[in-house]
Design a protein around this nucleic acid. Sequence first.
DNA 1: CCGAATCCGGCATGATACTG
DNA 2: CAGTATCATGCCGGATTCGG
Lengths: 220, 220
Amino acid sequence: MTKRSYNQYCGLAVALDLLGERWTMLVLRELLLGPRRFKDLLDGLPGIGTGLLSQRLKELEAAGVIDKATLPPPAGSNVYRLTEDGESLRPVLLGLTRWGMTRLGTPEADQYISSETLAVAVAARFNPATAHDAAGTHRLDIDARPFLLDIANGQVSVRAGEADRPVVSISTDSGSLIALINGTRTLADSLAEGFIAIDGDPAAIMALARAFDLAASEPE
Amino acid sequence: MTKRSYNQYCGLAVALDLLGERWTMLVLRELLLGPRRFKDLLDGLPGIGTGLLSQRLKELEAAGVIDKATLPPPAGSNVYRLTEDGESLRPVLLGLTRWGMTRLGTPEADQYISSETLAVAVAARFNPATAHDAAGTHRLDIDARPFLLDIANGQVSVRAGEADRPVVSISTDSGSLIALINGTRTLADSLAEGFIAIDGDPAAIMALARAFDLAASEPE
DNA sequence: CCGAATCCGGCATGATACTG
DNA sequence: CAGTATCATGCCGGATTCGG
């Protein structure tokens, strides 16, 4: 039984033959943050079901977009991670994310929200044109989960994990981050009222705010 | 009966709720080239069926990504076209196309090929970093169908139609263009053996070749 | 010719149960 | 925890039909 295909000699059609099935790109979104176990993926994709996730992972692995690795002892568990080819989808996925974010209002009561998707959302807001002086590794904690933002060569990449010696450290919770992202609350207010804590060199902080288009009202 | 949704507060999930269903992005690919009638879309998307195309168009129109217009008399027919919001998907769709093109070998016998998808493929190859001096409107004829390539501000956009006074005019057929794109035949050979005809200012031609990464072996 | 509605067989998906 | 097996449901693909 052969997989269904658009059967067109067209880059987009071929990309969609592979990535266009339900859940596939969301699986890759999860992997943008780093290697993930089966269970981690299930948790981040409510509704997918084990069978379908298993099938998607096999398809992606067969296509060379992800691979499977066994963690060294004592962990010993399997993780899935992006290959170099999969990694090259990062700007494309962030581009789609950015497009979708414009039609993202305030969260509905029944909508799934995770610190992971918010971390990706932050990365999608990154604007290379205003990124001067924002280079380096920064730390972002959302609901006490640590992420690191790597900015180099005018590009950003987010990962789960703790930064070694971050240039800037930011700490907040989902609700406050959402309020900041959709413009309900300014950065200045967020800081003043204690919804967000930022630590680091003032100049670097300003540069970061600019790089993510959050400098509407400047933090002091 | 309500449309199915990932129901996540995430830009990518929202984008895929709308664009992730089967055929949707390929419909938009067709519209990248300009307004299209229902029948044109059917022809460019073999296998879709009238019902599903009709449904997709309604979904996209409801979401404000496309709109429907009635051509002035005597044509009087309906056309579908991208709204400004839909137009902003152009770089995203071209990015996915570029990613997919790398796994596009030589055409299979039963694969659908059209001058339209090839025109999009050409645009997807555009490299802003090497685009100096390639600005302007150029004409590209594929299998006698005219397209125009607009290059401005380091960005490219393709449309169906005839350019007024093109800076450079290129004329070729699908097979020759495919051979050029996938590296089977160099630009120099294509010209020497008459598979491609190019007309225009030599400096502009060179700039174009560079902008599309085709200058491996230089013409002349 | 344009566009949409309908019916139907088959496959993809979603949920749960089950095994190592 | 990491998947496989199973089954009900609903989406998709193809054909046909129908009104403008």
